[in-house]
Design a protein around this nucleic acid. Structure first.
Length: 272
DNA sequence: AATTCCCACAACCGCCCACGA
DNA sequence: TTCGTGGGCGGTTGTGGGAAT
């Protein structure tokens, strides 16, 4: 009855993975594809729990993972999505396919949380409200964009640059060719974006958040994009034949930064 | 130069849900 | 229908490296 245990605890190795273990794992997945993690330790001889193998693959060895500094754009996305969705790191990561949920979670906990706290203090001292996560032009009449931008541009950015040059990246690079022919490696979970956003919107309304009466939230997906009418809760799905319209977040970020895409890329860290 | 402190991040832990026997 | 497992996810911890003293 049932299945045998995923892994017995005796003899299971813990701690950092060695390059040798990485190579064994990658070679195995290259041959058999990701999945059926229970069989991985058995078939590879790795003294690791199946969960550990899966985690190692999804967080570090999987090709297409971008490492190192988060761009201001990514930062903005994370901050906004966190405000919208809460600590749903997997959901947030689905909007940043090159980043893992673990990466985003760590970045949030080590950088953004502090920045937000510091920034809130700054705002308090200037008697400025935090911009609502889903604000638009019509809802921010009392919001001083100019003063806010000045705060954002304070030149004491302390964002750390973590250079990742371990063997795992090299292994991932080796696999890139293979993954190009594989179906959708970066999307490891099926996030129901429209349901998620509906829920988030509902929660914000309940919390007395700013509503977007005329707003249509555009949620990008792999093959289609969703337009969500926040007022009617109507969801319209579009096939992605042409480049998608600006997402709500992009719109928000562009508005915040004077609508200049180029400037966006050179944006100072939002919360310093 | 040695020691302590702090920070960033990789990895583990525990819970939950879906699914199969 | 029940129970056990696999896999997913969020929270937390351990550890190594750099900064500060």
């Amino acid at each position: 009855m049932g299945r045998p245990p995923c892994c017995d605890k005796i003899g299971i190795k813990k701690g950092p993975w060695t390059p040798e273990e990485d190579i064994i794992l990658v070679s195995y997945i290259q041959e058999h594809g990701p999945g059926n993690w229970r069989s991985v330790p058995t078939n590879t001889g790795l003294m690791r729990c199946s969960k550990s193998c899966r985690l190692r693959w999804t967080n570090y060895l999987r090709p297409g993972i971008k490492r190192g500094n988060f761009t201001p754009h990514e930062e903005g996305m994370i901050i906004h999505l966190q405000a919208l969705l809460g600590n749903k790191w997997a959901a947030i990561a689905s909007y940043l396919p090159q980043r893992t949920d673990n990466d985003i979670k760590n970045y949030w906990n080590t950088h953004l949380k502090k920045k937000l706290k510091k920034f809130q203090t700054e705002l308090d001292s200037h008697n400025l409200p935090l911009p609502p996560p889903n604000f638009d032009n019509s809802s921010t009449n009392n919001y001083d964009h100019h003063q806010f931008s000045k705060l954002l541009n304070s030149p004491n950015s302390s964002s750390s640059s973590s250079l990742y040059a371990s063997s795992t990246e090299n292994i991932s690079r080796l696999l890139e060719g293979w993954m190009r022919s594989s179906p959708n490696p970066s999307r490891r979970n099926n996030i129901d974006h429209d349901e998620m956003l509906h829920e988030a919107q509902k929660n914000q309304d309940q919390d007395g958040g700013v509503s977007n009466h005329d707003d249509v939230v555009t949620i990008p997906n792999e093959k289609s994009s969703y337009n969500i009418n926040c007022e009617s809760s109507e969801v319209v799905t579009h096939e992605k034949a042409s480049p998608p319209p600006f997402t709500y977040l992009e719109k928000w970020l562009l508005e915040e930064n004077g609508g200049q895409v180029e400037e966006l890329m050179e944006l100072p860290m939002i919360f310093t």
